[in-house]
Design a protein around this nucleic acid. Sequence first.
DNA 1: TAGAGCCTGGACAACGTTGTCAGAAGCGGG
DNA 2: CCCGCTTCTGACAACGTTGTCCAGGCTCTA
Lengths: 345, 345
Amino acid sequence: MPETHRLAGTRYGNRPTMKDVAARAGVGLKTVSRVVNGEPGVTPETERRVQEAIEALGFRRNDSARVLRKGRTASIGLVLEDLADPFYGPLSRAVEEVARAHGALLINGSSAEDPDREQELVLALCARRVDGLVVIPAGDDHRYLEPELKAGVATVFVDRPAGKIDADVVLSDSYGGARDGVAHLIAHGHRRIGFIGDMPRIHTAAERLRGYRAAMEDAGIAVEDAWMSLGATDPLRVRRAAEEMLSGPSPVTAIFAGNNRVTVTVIRVLAEQPRRVAFVGFDDIELADLLQPGVTVVAQDAAALGRTAAERLFRQLDGSLVVPERIELPTRLITRGSGELPPAD
Amino acid sequence: MPETHRLAGTRYGNRPTMKDVAARAGVGLKTVSRVVNGEPGVTPETERRVQEAIEALGFRRNDSARVLRKGRTASIGLVLEDLADPFYGPLSRAVEEVARAHGALLINGSSAEDPDREQELVLALCARRVDGLVVIPAGDDHRYLEPELKAGVATVFVDRPAGKIDADVVLSDSYGGARDGVAHLIAHGHRRIGFIGDMPRIHTAAERLRGYRAAMEDAGIAVEDAWMSLGATDPLRVRRAAEEMLSGPSPVTAIFAGNNRVTVTVIRVLAEQPRRVAFVGFDDIELADLLQPGVTVVAQDAAALGRTAAERLFRQLDGSLVVPERIELPTRLITRGSGELPPAD
DNA sequence: TAGAGCCTGGACAACGTTGTCAGAAGCGGG
DNA sequence: CCCGCTTCTGACAACGTTGTCCAGGCTCTA
């Protein structure tokens, strides 16, 4: 009575299993398995009968059972900060493409920059036995991953290095990029340059700050505290920070922004200013070329970050990689106008 | 000999199981299960011993086995068109938040607007026994999902309706939004208005085209074929289409763009034009307010689409929803300047 | 002190699949 | 006509977890 399936009544219907298919096709369980997996040694006639039964019952192999038996899940996990951030979209997509090329699915989650949530997510992924992990870390202590690494879970950190463990990491050259960006402003005559960035506990933020300081020092400029705002993340605080450094006793004539979110807010503030203030931002943003003036940025290639990380991940899984490495991708200064404005004081 | 674990030598190390933990803690298998799941009936002293063993071995529960036993995976699948598209980032994030609130993980994939790839992804997700699916369909025939629906896989379609099956769907009011946007241009004196949109086989594209036609008809304007470009997706073709309708025998004085990608390209083209051409785009874009002139758009709330869909999904899983419904979310016309320019001919 | 009842812990089966292995059937050659 | 070989098929165990059920030890009361 095939109807019992629908009548069984549990809200979550009983799905047909290979056993059901076998019964319907009048063959053995293993034969169904063979057909489903395209293994050789099945007569065309038998295969047809099995296919028919599969079709009729709407059978789909239960991958949980398969994974349990085989050990590999053909899925990888991606933990990032915020899927909605335009910087992570292309990165995520690049990871997905590589995963797809290797027949793997992508499970992903946003840590919202919260170390606990990061750990929770990563461990949940490990419990699902993902074959590998791509992590954009929020925290700075990843020793909780030691058992996983030992167990052979491939792991690559992206955008920021892992904390207190030895693991692969793929980064953009935040320090060099920021230094070049600030040096660019200095080369155009600026000396009072503001820096607005994220909390220095975030590696990239710290590196970009370091790049800013290095460029200033190289030029022999003493940085004033009032020129730096660290940890301003939400638009309101960024706005306030920008307005303050533009109106203090020694107002800045140029601003360097530490990431894309800061950039969009600062651009808004600058658009309201009576005088032209030079600007360079870290991360490219869409339509930057169409603004007046065009926005000069230090661009990093988010897709390349994701692709590089994912490829490394699968090379770990191949067994062709053993020693963790640190890969740093270059950034690119794109001049569009805002960074080439002269000081206006 | 606990060392055998490390020595075992299979590249994919043997992970400790509950059995190993039980042996080490000197308790029964089920007791470990109880501790791991926080079930009652374990002495604090026993629990401590078990926890210690878990810690020492780096044990993580194998969720594949758990799923196999329990039937639910606590994960949902999201199939969309392109994770890298800024429209889908917030949508995806919203789905994730709702999933998280329900203790579920999110698996997602991009169909790249390819129906076969959509089906492949969806079926892979079903094989993993996701509890539910949020699908932004690429194809127009979803009968392949019938067995899944029957089996109780909660399913919600977003942004575009399902094809040939009866399922929940959450949409933006593409027709109404486009009609309003075009009517807005007409109200500002335009009569020769161009439309550049995606392939009409995509539901939203067809609806927006329908809205355009409706607005034109309402105003008694006969639409010329040269004013419409359908299926131009890549920047080059969009550019060509825009340039053609701006230079023909009866050049348009305004353009309506069918989605965000078309919008950014058209804006570039218009910026190069000697005369001012009015513009309204479907979908809001970042920094639209800072361009000269500001970009008038018909905005849809991507996060709300995702949230609504996901909430409906979990209500299906609760069992509180039975009858598929079609929910249409309103759009909002945001005037910023480009849509209020008068005709310049 | 015996009996009732509770609390803790463990043995065992089951979930749906795949790997192993052995049996059955078909076929050709001696 | 029988043997041996190949080709196809199926029985069975195992993967790691959880649900069921029972046993043993304890406390409490009469």
